[in-house]
């Protein structure tokens, strides 16, 4: 039966994450929010971050997506909460390489997200897996940009 190949893509742990996603919902207090969509399929994710002193203290995600994008976002939250922004950016890059089938070295820090390596064999689904991670990357980079521009602004004013 051809569906047996699907086991590579949908392992039980992935299905668990998609049906009971971790850190799903809305934060009471967030430092920044990102909405990102996948225009080819209509998936949408809303990501809320609470970043303090360069550390991701907490995060929540919401929106609508397939089991791959939901599981991936759920696994991502497990992997990056408590990490610094820089550590998270490294994980995002590592995950992106992983789902494209490239060598990524030690996968321990990715946690359950390492299970998504099977996505590489389903090229049409890579964008599903990376949606949440791209949103996180944008959130971190935007925050760094605003911080930098605020600092510059202060310097301009001589504060």
């Amino acid at each position: 039966m051809a569906l047996s190949k699907l086991d590579n893509l949908y392992r039980q742990v992935i299905l668990d994450h998609s049906s009971h996603p971790h850190h799903h919902g809305v934060l009471d207090e967030s430092t920044n929010e990102i909405e990102m969509n996948n225009p080819t399929c209509g998936d949408v994710i809303q990501l809320q971050l609470h970043i303090e002193d360069g550390v991701i203290k907490d995060m929540r995600f919401d929106g609508s997506g397939c089991s791959i994008s939901t599981a991936s976002a759920s696994m991502m939250t497990d992997a990056v909460i408590g990490k610094t922004e820089q550590e998270a950016l490294v994980l995002i890059e590592q995950f992106s390489e992983l789902v494209q089938g490239n060598e990524t070295g030690d996968l321990d820090d990715l946690g359950d997200a390492a299970m998504l390596s099977g996505v590489a064999k389903f090229p049409a689904r890579i964008k599903c897996a990376t949606l949440g991670w791209k949103a996180l990357e944008q959130g971190i980079l935007e925050k760094q940009d605003t911080t930098v521009s605020k600092q510059l602004h202060r310097e301009d004013k001589g504060e």
């Binding site: 051809a2 569906l3 399929c41 209509g42 997506g65 397939c66 089991s67 791959i68 049409a124 689904r125």
Partner: peptide
């Protein structure tokens, strides 16, 4: 209970080509 992307991938594994998504009609 199933997202159409997951359905389309599964059907593809059975050799059945269908579309999933918003069909350019958001």
């Amino acid at each position: 209970g199933l997202h159409p992307h997951d359905v389309a991938t599964a059907l593809d594994m059975e050799g059945v080509a269908v579309r999933a998504g918003h069909h350019c009609a958001q």
